[in-house]
Nucleic acid binder design. Structure first.
Lengths: 102, 102
DNA sequence: TGACAATATGCCATATCTGACATAATTATT
DNA sequence: AATAATTATGTCAGATATGGCATATTGTCA
C-alpha cells in the first residue's frame, strides 16, 4: 500500500493499517471515507478562515469542542449528516460543499 | 406560504404544514431538508434508470424495501449518510451526487 | 373489476451517533 | 523553559437512525 495515500485516508479508528489493508476496503467504502475526510477538511478551513477556535465553533453549533475536533479529523463516529449540517451552519455555500464531492 | 414550494419541501413527517409554517424553519434547516430531498430524488432516479424495484435495491444495499421507500421519500428518519452511501453503492458518480448540492 | 406487483406507512428492538466531561497532547506566547 | 491557549483522545448515558416485519395503499394489466 502506498504510504501517502494511506496516511491521507487513514481516519483514525477505521483500523486500516494493521490487520486490514487498504485493499480490503471496497470501492464504496473508500469513496465514502474520502468524502468524509474532504468534508472534514472543508469544515476546518471554514472555521480557520473565520478565525474561530473549536470552542467558539462548538458553541455556534450547540455542540462541544471535543466533537468539533472529531469532526475535523474525520473520526468514524462522526456522520456525514453532522458535517453537512455544520458546514451549512457556518455559512458554507452549497457550491463549496459540493466541491468536496468532486 | 407558496403552495408549490411547500409541497416540494414537505417531507412527510417534518410537520411543516399545520402548526409550524415554513417560515418557522431557519435557513439552515430548510437548506438541509432541500438537500436531503434532492439526494432522495437522485437515488430514485438512479434506481429507475437501472430498472430495479425497491426490493432489489434493498437487497443490494443490505437493507429493506420499507427503508428504501423512506429514503426515496425524504422521510426524516433517513440520514444524509445512508443516502450518500446508497448512491455510492448503486454506482452514482461523485459528480451526480454533487449536483444535488447545486 | 379482480388479482398481482410495487410502493408507502407504522412500529419496534438493536445499533449507531450525539453532546458532554475529563484529561492528554500539542502549539503559541512570555 | 514555564504558562496559557488550543486541539486531540477516551468514555459514556441518552438520543437518533437502522433493518425488518406487518400491513396499507397505490399502480398495472388481464
Amino acid at each position: 500500500m502506498e504510504d501517502n495515500k494511506k496516511k491521507r485516508l487513514e481516519a483514525k479508528g477505521y483500523t486500516i493499517g494493521s490487520a486490514e489493508d487498504f485493499l480490503g476496503l471496497s470501492r464504496g467504502e473508500a469513496e465514502y471515507i474520502e468524502l468524509k475526510l474532504a468534508l472534514s477538511q472543508t469544515l476546518a478551513q471554514h472555521r480557520k478562515q473565520k478565525n474561530l477556535t473549536q470552542i467558539q465553533l462548538a458553541k455556534l453549533l450547540k455542540s462541544s469542542q471535543s466533537r468539533v475536533a472529531k469532526m475535523e479529523n474525520g473520526n468514524p463516529t462522526v456522520s456525514l449528516d453532522i458535517l453537512v449540517k455544520s458546514l451549512i451552519a457556518i455559512g458554507a455555500t452549497k457550491e463549496s460543499i459540493a466541491k468536496a464531492f468532486h
